[in-house]
């Protein structure tokens, strides 16, 4: 029954994030404020935070319009460098063959390894994690657990969390195609919480009591450990601009990095940068 509730609540939350965009009314800087428009596109992981930034920013400056679009990190890099948008968004480092852009570190996102609370394994090395998701380690007894088959749960192709996990952990190996694939962080969590021998990865923001979070290389997956840099599976979320920002774009990015902007980041379950 509790799990059923969790599932319903997850569905509700998706609806709620859409609605909360309208809530909250910060002080309006009247008449004198700047005018103009800002366009942003890229990573779908950054998108919900960017939308919150845009909402609050346009309430402060009602004459400004901010357009937020998705598309994925690669789209963010490409459209920022060819000038189709003012700001690109990426939830990964820039690759060597990509154009050099000015990076503005917005926040960080940790990816946790979730197991069923009844699982006796409390930690794995990063290499063990890689080999489990590659399908090379298939039994919990190979990593100090009971003699049970490991059920691997992953996200679908194209998901930002999956892409980041592949970059940070998989190191060119492919995730086994016998993995159970679920289309959202919430669905991964539910699947792990009802499957005693499962392991899955999810964004820190989705951790709750229904699953336990494993230590990786001996470091527990918590916001603090991600913040001080000891937890190994953390990805940066960037805003990208072609040149050093100026005018309205600078104003917007400065707002995102301000204390007020960073409190939005923490609200959304990501790791703020100081």
């Amino acid at each position: 029954m509790k799990k059923l509730l969790t599932l319903l609540i997850t569905a509700g939350l998706i609806g709620a994030t859409v609605l909360t965009g309208c809530a909250g009314t910060p002080a309006t800087h009247d008449t004198a404020g700047p005018t103009g428009s800002i366009t942003e596109a890229g990573s779908t992981t950054v998108q919900p935070i960017a939308e919150r930034f845009a909402d609050v920013f346009t309430q402060m400056y009602p004459k400004v319009t901010v357009t937020i679009q998705g598309g994925g990190s690669s789209v963010g890099v490409k459209s920022a460098s060819d000038g189709t948008v003012d700001i690109g968004a990426a939830s990964r480092e820039l690759k060597a063959d990509e154009p050099a852009l000015v990076k503005h570190l917005l926040c960080r996102d940790g990816i946790a390894l979730a197991t069923h609370p009844s699982n006796t394994v409390t930690g794995l090395t990063k290499d063990e994690v890689r080999r489990i998701f590659a399908g090379e380690i298939t039994n919990w007894s190979q990593v100090g657990g009971p003699n049970e088959n490991i059920i691997v749960v992953a996200r679908e192709e194209g998901s930002g969390t999956r892409t980041a996990f592949e970059e940070l952990v998989m190191d060119e190996t492919l995730i086994t195609n016998t993995a159970i694939l679920q289309p959202s962080n919430g669905a991964v969590r539910t699947t792990v919480s009802i499957t005693p021998t499962a392991i899955g990865f999810l964004s820190f923001g989705y951790l709750d009591g229904s699953v336990s979070s494993l230590a990786v290389d001996g470091v527990l997956g918590t916001i603090e450990n991600a913040k001080n840099g000891s937890y190994p599976i953390v990805r940066p979320l960037y805003f990208l601009t072609k040149e050093a920002p100026s005018g309205l774009v600078k104003e917007f990015i400065d707002f995102c990095l301000s204390a007020e902007g960073q409190s939005i980041v923490e609200d959304e379950g990501y790791i703020s940068v100081d």
Binding site: E156, A179, L181, P183
Partner: peptide
């Protein structure tokens, strides 16, 4: 069904349907 894109080898094996293929991946596909 588990949504793994593999040809099932037994009734206990995971699989994916044509409809599921679309619904699971359309969100981020380009």
């Amino acid at each position: 069904i588990g949504n793994s894109p593999i040809i099932p080898t037994s009734p206990l094996s995971q699989g994916r349907t044509l409809t599921g293929n679309i619904a699971v991946e359309i969100m981020y596909a380009s």
